[in-house]
């Protein structure tokens, strides 16, 4: 796998103490009197993938909504390039180079691939009354950018809805990269995808990192996270349960944190009572190393 090699060079190029693009300090968020997030510290560095994991309702979406400008934090500090910011709309975030690819909101299915690629940032030519789309240039750039990300389509006119879920997600990633994103936020991009399609998306996450982007990758799946992640943050009931670099955590520990060690042991015990479930393959409970 090509990404393994490049990942190491990327990791060396950006030492852990390099200035992060995004830093959250003690960030908290309240929905009415529901405390959705509390005391979140997180750093996103260029050329590194930060994975945010957690169970349903742990606060993953809330966290990225704050970073992408859909919601505002109530406590703590949100710094971009060391400057405290308060983003009011996704447009503010886009201006700072923070792009978000949502699972369902990535594309307009009935529109051609190239129109989707340039949607909202169309290239035009000619003076005003006859200002028109520069179709040729947009198609050319779309083709080039997609192949730079390793996506090969032979017909850019086909509606993007005819692509597979993974390809569509990948086009959305390529698009964010082209429009100058420095930080790419992906909210559960592999949630609805099969093994193969997830592989496609993971490959493009690695490609985006190679191009020097900081990536925030939200997922339920510790295996997917461990394949591309440089840093892991596990959320539990709105607080960080684990916040560790790759070298300090193994896949098994990560899985364990995700599921909540004690709960998993209980589940395993229960499943052992059910005929036909092989529990020997389930991971053993591991003592939490830090947090």
């Amino acid at each position: 796998m090509a990404t393994n090699v490049t990942k190491d060079s990327a990791a060396q190029a950006s030492a852990p103490d390099e200035e992060p693009v995004i830093r959250l300090r003690d960030v908290g968020k309240l929905y009415g009197n529901i405390r959705a997030l509390e005391g979140i510290d997180l750093a996103v560095r260029p050329g590194r993938v930060t994975c945010v994991l957690g169970d349903n309702g742990a606060g993953k979406s809330t966290l990225i909504k704050i970073i992408s400008g859909l919601h505002q934090h109530d406590e703590g500090e949100y710094l971009v390039d060391g400057e405290p910011v308060r983003l009011n709309t996704p447009r503010d975030a886009l201006k700072l180079g923070i792009a978000t690819v949502y699972q369902d909101l990535a594309t307009v299915p009935l529109m051609p691939v190239w129109r989707n690629f340039f949607l909202g940032s169309e290239l035009t030519r000619g003076p005003w009354p006859v200002r028109r789309l520069d179709i040729q240039r947009m198609k050319q750039i779309t083709g080039e950018e997609l192949s730079a990300m390793g996506i090969h389509l032979d017909n850019l006119e086909q509606p993007i809805g005819t692509l597979s879920g993974g390809q569509r997600q990948s086009v959305a990633i390529a698009r964010a990269v082209h429009f100058g994103a420095r930080v790419l936020i992906l909210d559960e991009p592999t949630a609805a995808l099969g093994v193969k399609q997830s592989g496609v998306v993971l490959k493009y996450i690695a490609a985006a990192r190679e191009r020097g982007l900081g990536v925030i990758f939200i997922t339920h799946n510790p295996h997917h996270a461990y394949m591309v992640g440089d840093h892991f943050a596990v959320l539990r009931l709105g607080a960080l349960e684990l916040n560790a670099a790759r070298e300090d955590v193994s896949l098994e520990e990560l899985t364990n944190h995700m599921a909540g060690g004690a709960e998993l042991a209980a589940l395993k015990h229960e499943l052992a009572q059910v005929r036909g479930v092989d529990v020997d393959e389930l991971p053993e409970e591991v003592a939490a190393p830090s947090s």
């Binding site: 796998m1 990404t3 393994n4 990942k7 190491d8 390793g150 996506i151 090969h152 993974g166 390809q167 990948s170 093994v195 193969k196 399609q197 997830s198 592989g199 496609v200 993971l202 490959k203 295996h223 997917h224 461990y226 394949m227 193994s250 896949l251």
Partner: peptide, 15 residues
Amino acid sequence: HTATPAAATPPASPA
């Protein structure tokens, strides 16, 4: 990345 499980390696050119 040697710890990465081989079974979960993404396919080479799936797109």
